[in-house]
Amino acid sequence: MDETTFLRLIEDHQDILYKICRVYRSAPEDRKDLFQEIVYQLWKSVPGFRGQSAFSTWMYRVALTTAIADFRKPRPPLRYVEQLPDRPGEPGNPEEARERLFRAIGALAPAEKALITLYLEDLSYREIAAITGLSENNVGVKLNRIRHKIEQLLKSHP
């Protein structure tokens, strides 16, 4: 695979990478670093991609391995805002709900994050099993536990 084809494929699938970075890193700088690291690891791993699976499936494997195996200490999450809001966020706001969901996912263990990220990407149990190396049954059992855990997290931090 040449560089142009690779970069085009990355561009086509960049949403996947942004989501993984969002789930595994809280601070924007850490996310940028992780994104950069994943793209580099993908490029270096390209010779190992034999086209037996979809590019996205292969991309998930390398990206998730990179995100989980990186042990560097993350920066504390700091968020700067131009202006302080006049009112608290609306409880029904979809953006707020999305943010809460990401916070809850962020509190999960690294491998749980991987499973729920793949699940939220609408991948089938079979596809998740192929990426992670778990059996389909195990994927189902583990996802049930994770969903329950997320519900608890959302309840305890409304």
């Binding site: 580099y40 690891q41 270096k44 791993s45 190992g48 991609f49 292969w58 494997r61 390398v62 998730l64 391995t65 990179t66 989980i68 195996a69 991987a114 192929a130 990426i131 992670t132 190396g133 778990l134």
Partner: peptide, 17 residues
């Protein structure tokens, strides 16, 4: 910090790491 490479599935890659 060199490439993680392709090792079949996530579990295999993590075991290698």
């Amino acid at each position: 910090v060199q490439p993680v490479g392709e090792t079949g599935h996530l579990r295999g890659a993590l075991e290698k790491q």
